[in-house]
Design a protein around this nucleic acid. Structure first.
Length: 437
RNA sequence: GACCCUUUCAUCUAGUGGUCAAGGAUAUUACGUUUUCAACGUAAAAACAGAGGUUCAAAUCCUUUAAGGGUCGCCA
């Protein structure tokens, strides 16, 4: 049984990088007819926010990636974690450490000065003396002191990390609250996760979590560490690079299927295929095919994909979607005609709405300079003739064509330009024949 | 600084020792269709990070250099 999970911490919105790893996890579960679970990592009470949690859940809803079963909240499982802490303490696999934060800082500075990797020195590991007064101890787990911690990563291959690199890390804070690497291992094991798919910024957490798995006697899942998404320059993706919040894509007029198609192709591919429906992704996705290297965010491709999905979308769907962008075509009997004429002119719903408004809303005033140019000469006659034609009870296509067909192509062009300007106040854009339909 | 990971066109990628004088897609440029723009079609340009090996044969294996990324919390 394949069980995957996505485990965000509710400290902000859902990042597109997070969405991609969630997508990979979700696809893996779907592909194997397994389950995809959601867990909220809210052990740090000081930084959690309800709004952030809701925003994340809302983003999942928007893209249509549902989770199976109840959402797990780590904050509600503290009793459970406490049991395991006590168990490790009793078994002598964990111990109380009375080192103060100040002492720790000093130790780190010394190690930095000696150009060593900073780590806890294990001074309380076998402490038998009288503990210092007035210090609330933290609890540290006993990590192996020699040898290698080795694991097989589904995307990176074999990872070897010297045990000396992993210190006796804290599993419970001075106030008793359990820490991240401890609870993640417990939850993943208890939730039955068979595939852990996460960002490779967690690669170094894995040996620590393995220490916990071993200490508690849990079976190891398969780990898959996915490389990061960088910006177009190959640097870390930050807010300065534009939208990183998944929900920003909704307001910018992207379709979720375009975003998902874009993200799935970042670090994963299937031959030369570029367009993937959800069903195809599910059928073809395998975490083994995820690339080792990081990839760069590329807006042009997303835009292209979005334009593709807009063109593919049914009229009904677009009518519904467009309502959020100030265009209501619900009871418009020309909706289909309008959409056919505009679909190919908008890469996003925002652009599409803008094009539609050009048709729906007649200009009431014109820029003096442009209108002088547009309405000079025989413009009045042309427009009147055009208006007459439009007022015919049923203008036939033959009539409109005869109107369009000028012998003199320059004059023809001139006429169309003037007409278009009168209707949309733009000197480029729609085919004027649109108005005669 | 220490440790770990990565490296094919501008970008996403195909590629697992010969079928690669490296394929597809986006973006770019040109031409065509079109009154214009868009869209579409056709074409062009564009890459194996560098250096050493191994081999009859290397983008693919090894070593090394460089560059980029990540991690070094009583954050997650």
């Amino acid at each position: 049984m394949t069980v995957t999970r996505f485990a965000p911490s509710p400290t902000g919105y859902l990042h597109i990088g997070g969405l991609r790893t969630a997508l990979f996890s979700w696809l893996t579960a779907q592909h194997n007819k397994g389950t995809f679970l959601l867990r909220i990592e809210d052990t740090d009470m000081a930084r959690n926010s309800e709004e952030a949690k809701d925003a994340i859940l809302k983003a999942f809803e928007w893209v249509g990636m549902g989770n199976d079963g109840e959402v797990v909240y780590q904050s509600k499982r503290f009793d459970l974690y406490k049991q395991y802490i006590d168990q490790l303490l009793e078994e002598g696999k964990a111990y109380k450490c009375y080192m103060s934060k100040e002492e720790l800082t000093i130790l780190r500075e010394e190690q930095m000065a000696k150009k060593e990797r900073t780590r806890y020195d294990g001074r309380y590991r076998d402490f038998r003396g009288t503990p210092p007064v007035g210090v609330d101890p933290v609890i540290r787990i006993k990590a192996p002191q020699e040898g290698m911690i080795t694991f097989e990563d589904g995307v990176k291959g074999t990872i070897n990390i010297a045990a000396s690199e992993v210190d006796d890390f804290v599993i419970a804070r001075a106030d008793g609250a359990p820490t991240y690497n401890f609870v993640v291992a417990i939850d993943d094991a208890l939730m039955g996760c068979s595939e852990v798919i996460r960002g490779d910024d967690h690669l170094y957490n894995t040996p620590k979590q393995i220490v916990v798995y071993k200490a508690l006697g849990f079976d190891l899942p398969n780990f898959n560490h996915v490389a990061m998404i960088n910006n177009e320059q190959g640097k870390k993706l930050s807010k300065r690079d534009g939208a990183t919040d998944v929900m920003d894509y909704k307001t910018m007029g992207y379709l979720p299927e375009a975003l998902l198609n874009f993200l799935v192709r970042l670090g994963w591919s299937h031959g030369d295929q570029e367009i993937f429906s959800l069903e195809e992704m599910i059928a073809l996705f395998d975490p083994k095919d995820i690339n080792k290297s990081s990839s760069n965010y590329n807006l042009d491709k997303l835009l292209w994909l979005n334009a593709h999905y807009i063109k593919e979308a049914s009229d009904e769907k677009l009518v519904t979607l467009l309502k959020d962008f100030g265009v209501d075509l619900e009871d418009n009997d020309k909706a289909s005609m309008i959409l056919t004429a505009t679909k190919e002119r908008g890469k996003t719903l925002v652009e599409l709405a803008k094009q539609i408004k050009l048709i729906m809303i007649a200009p009431t005033e014109y820029d003096a300079k442009s209108s002088k140019k547009a309405f000079k000469g025989e413009a009045k006659e042309i427009l009147n003739a055009f208006a007459d034609m439009l007022s015919l009870s049923s203008p036939t296509s033959k009539r409109s064509i005869s109107f369009c067909d000028g012998k003199d192509s320059r004059r023809k062009r001139d006429r169309f330009w003037k007409n278009r300007y009168a209707f949309t106040r733009k000197s480029y854009g729609f085919d004027d024949r649109f108005w005669t339909r």
